[in-house]
């Protein structure tokens, strides 16, 4: 597979380490009302679709950026690659 790194261009999958579903960006609030439940869902439950999947990849052997890759789990086609920090900010994460 080839991941088109937003800064560095197309790179072989071997340069990357995979983490999983990009929902891992949405870490719950530790002081929220049902924090334990939310953390349980955050850590353990997955949609695991046969189709479009947004997922986190780390450019371990490159610039060490985390990427959000939109990839089809059936065809392995990659339709979008973004810097995870940009995605995280867009999703309201800050400090």
């Amino acid at each position: 597979m080839i991941i088109n790194h937003p800064l560095m261009g197309p790179r072989d999958r071997q340069e990357f380490t995979y983490l999983g579903d990009a929902c891992l960006i949405d870490r719950p609030d530790w002081q929220g009302g049902n924090a334990m439940d939310q953390f349980f869902e955050y850590v353990y439950l997955r949609d695991d679709p046969a189709g479009t999947h947004r997922e986190l990849w780390y450019h371990e052997h490159g610039d060490r950026s985390w990427l959000v890759v939109t990839r089809n789990t059936v065809t392995h086609e990659i339709t979008n690659v973004e810097l995870a920090s940009d995605v995280a900010r867009k999703q309201g994460r800050s400090k």
């Binding site: 985390w66 995605v87 995280a88 994460r93 800050s94």
Partner: peptide
Amino acid sequence: EFARQCLWP
């Protein structure tokens, strides 16, 4: 790096 870039960018 994950914490830095994805959790607290």
